[in-house]
């Protein structure tokens, strides 16, 4: 909602977009019962691209992003993630899930495990990484999100911003090639939003492919190379951030932007 200023210089040297396709969605439709939530979605995301998805509440942003790692099933069309097509085949689904990291609005850390165990669990059980190596890796990423000293605490003892950064570290420990974020900052206080956004910017600077549902327009302006606007289950408009914010084409987008930016 706020246009949070991001003070520091952003290093764009590594933020290169390659020609390789990371995600390809074509003719995708999804229904909840008889309710048509996603309507004819076509989207190609290249490796290294950072995409921000915006839109009014209920427009299907979460549903779209959750279809990408099969947390929701789509009924029509094709989704190819990292060269693997998403079908009902459990093997494919597990493979894609281990390649795609996801961060949720409410963090969804495992409350019965310590921070370190949260981070090592999936590498140990899914990737079969030896425990010691998994712990080293977890510490590496916890340092990266700047909370190595909390490693032995439980999630319930951390602030919201810290929990979200742990959630990011937990995903990174699986060495994903794509990261999905579903409103990662909308459950946080302004002070904590910044620390989470900083972490996400750092990820972007390292060339991670990112799809991010967010209302942080400052983040979108500075980091995204494409903004996608959804309304009523449809992609209404997409453009580079400058164009998108300064020169929105559709009426729906203009209306949304004027509400969200408070002009």
């Amino acid at each position: 909602m706020s246009e949070l200023a991001i003070e520091r210089e952003i290093d764009r040297s590594k933020m290169q977009v390659s020609d390789e396709v990371a995600i390809q969605i074509s003719g995708m439709n999804k229904w909840y019962g008889s309710f048509h939530v996603l309507r004819d979605i076509n989207l190609t995301v290249n490796r290294g691209e950072r995409i921000v998805i915006a839109g009014p509440s209920g427009s299907g942003k979460s549903t779209l992003i959750r279809c990408l790692n099969a947390l929701e099933e789509h009924q029509q069309g094709q989704i190819i993630v990292d060269g693997t097509e998403l079908t009902s085949d459990l093997k494919n689904i597990d493979k894609i899930r281990s390649e795609v990291g996801m961060c949720f609005q409410h963090f969804n850390l495992f409350p019965h495990l310590t921070i370190l165990e949260n981070c090592t669990l999936a590498p140990i059980w899914v990737r079969k990484v030896p425990k010691k190596e998994a712990e080293e890796r977890a510490m590496h990423f916890l340092e990266k999100v700047k909370i190595p000293d909390q490693a032995h605490k439980y999630p319930g003892m951390l602030s919201g911003g810290q929990q979200q950064r742990v959630a990011i570290a937990r995903s990174l420990c699986m060495m994903p090639r794509i990261m999905l974020f579903d409103e990662p900052t909308s459950a946080l206080d302004p002070e904590m939003i910044k620390e989470v956004l900083d972490t996400m910017i750092e990820l972007a600077e390292e060339g991670m492919t990112m799809l991010c549902v967010t209302h942080e327009m400052g983040f979108a302006r500075q980091v995204a190379n494409r903004v996608i606007f959804m309304a009523d289950g449809q992609i209404v408009e997409q453009n580079e951030p400058e164009e998108f914010f300064n020169n929105p084409q559709s009426e729906r987008t203009q209306q949304f932007l004027s509400q969200i930016l408070g002009h």
Partner: peptide, 21 residues
């Protein structure tokens, strides 16, 4: 909360692992 199932799924844990762990 449903989020616990989703977090386990999104990390690629299979059903027995998600249940047990």
């Amino acid at each position: 909360p449903k989020g616990q199932y989703e977090a386990a799924d999104s990390l690629g844990l299979d059903y027995p692992q998600a249940m047990r762990l």
